[in-house]
C-alpha cells in the first residue's frame, strides 16, 4: 500500500493509513521542501520586482515616496544622456551576441576538428570566462591605452595608427563590446562544441558518401543540428549583453561623456546621485526591454525543432 502512495498521481485511491494520518494522501514529496526557497526568492526577488513597478512612478528617498506618475519615464526618454544609454544597451547586446554566435561556432568547428593542441586551445579559449570581469576590464583598459598600450603599439609596428579605443567616443562602446566577446566567446564555443559532438557520426559519413564537401556538410548538417546550441548561445548572450554592467563600469564608467553608458550604468549613476525613483524606472525599462526581446525570441527560436 505504501508503494502505491509513493506515486503522487495515485492520489485518488488513497490508502487507509494515509486517511488515518489526517485525511490527506501521504506523499514523500512534501511542499515544505519549497518553503525556504520560496521565502528567500519571494522576499528578495519577487517583492523588489513588483515594488519596482510602483516606485518607478515616484520620487523616492527610501523612506518616503511621492507619486509623480510617469515623470521618471518621461525624463528617461528626454534626457539625451539617458536615451543614449538605452540605444547603447541594444547595440551592445546585439553586437556582442552576434559576434559570440559567429565566432563561437567557427571556433567550435575548429576545435572539434583534427588539429594539433586541441586540448590546449579549448582551455585557453575558455579560461577568460572564469576570470573576474573587473580584472579583465582593468587589464584591457591598460592594453588599450592610446599612447602606451600594447594594442596600439602592435598596430604601430604594422603602420596603423590605432584610435583611442576607450577615449574616442566613436570607439568606446565597440571596444568594450570587443573585450566582452574576448571574455565570453569561450562559453559560446563550449556550448557549440557540446552541440557538435552530439551529432551522430553516421550523418557525416552518409553525407561524405553522397559526395558532400566540408562546406556542404557544415552547411547542411552541422549548422541545422546545432540549432539548440545556437538558441542557447543567442539567449544567454543577449540576456548577458542587455544586463551588462561590470565590464563597462570597469573600463570607462560610461564615458567619455555618456557615450558608452548602458541602462545598467545609468541605474547605478542615478542610484549614486540619490535619484532612487529614476534609478528604479531604469530598472523597469531594463525589465521591459529584456522580456520584450527574450520572450518572443525564445518562443520564435524554439518553435520548430529539427528532427534528429
Amino acid at each position: 500500500m505504501t508503494v502505491t502512495s509513493a506515486h503522487p498521481q495515485d492520489r485518488v485511491d488513497s490508502t487507509p493509513a494515509a486517511k488515518a494520518a489526517g485525511g490527506k494522501v501521504y506523499t514523500p514529496y512534501s511542499f515544505w521542501f519549497y518553503l525556504p526557497t520560496a521565502v528567500i526568492y519571494a522576499v528578495l526577488f519577487l517583492v523588489p520586482t513588483f515594488a519596482s513597478f510602483y516606485y518607478s512612478l515616484t520620487r523616492w528617498s527610501l523612506f518616503e515616496s511621492k507619486f509623480i506618475g510617469l515623470d521618471n519615464f518621461v525624463t528617461f526618454f528626454q534626457e539625451p544622456a539617458l536615451v543614449k544609454g538605452f540605444t547603447n544597451t541594444l547595440i551592445y547586446a546585439v553586437v556582442t551576441s552576434g559576434s559570440k554566435v559567429v565566432l563561437g561556432l567557427l571556433l567550435a568547428v575548429l576545435l572539434t576538428s583534427r588539429i594539433i593542441g586541441r586540448g590546449y586551445l579549448r582551455s585557453v579559449v575558455f579560461f577568460p570566462v572564469l576570470v573576474s570581469t573587473v580584472g579583465v576590464g582593468l587589464l584591457f583598459q591598460v592594453l588599450m591605452n592610446p599612447e602606451r598600450g600594447i594594442i596600439n603599439g602592435a598596430l604601430g609596428v604594422l603602420g596603423i595608427d590605432g584610435p583611442g579605443w576607450l577615449t574616442d567616443p566613436k570607439w568606446a562602446l565597440m571596444s568594450i563590446a570587443a573585450v566582452d566577446v574576448w571574455k565570453g566567446v569561450g562559453l559560446a564555443t563550449l556550448i557549440y562544441i557540446a552541440g557538435i559532438v552530439s551529432i551522430p557520426r553516421e550523418y557525416m559519413e552518409a553525407a561524405r558518401v553522397d559526395g558532400a564537401g566540408s562546406w556542404e556538410s557544415f552547411r547542411r548538417i552541422v549548422l541545422p543540428l546545432c540549432k539548440p546550441a545556437t538558441v542557447t548561445v543567442i539567449i544567454l548572450s543577449l540576456i548577458g549583453g542587455l544586463r551588462s554592467f561590470e565590464l563597462i563600469w570597469a573600463m570607462t564608467r560610461g564615458g567619455p561623456g555618456f557615450t558608452s553608458d548602458v541602462i545598467s550604468s545609468v541605474i547605478y549613476k542615478q542610484y549614486q546621485a540619490g535619484f532612487y525613483g529614476l534609478s528604479t524606472a531604469g530598472n523597469v525599462i531594463l525589465f521591459v526591454v529584456v522580456t520584450a526581446i527574450i520572450l518572443p525570441l525564445s518562443w520564435f527560436l524554439n518553435r520548430k525543432e529539427v528532427d534528429m
Partner: peptide, 9 residues
Amino acid sequence: IIPPAVVPT
C-alpha cells in the same frame, strides 16, 4: 531572465 530591481531590493 529578469534583471533584479536594485533600489527596491
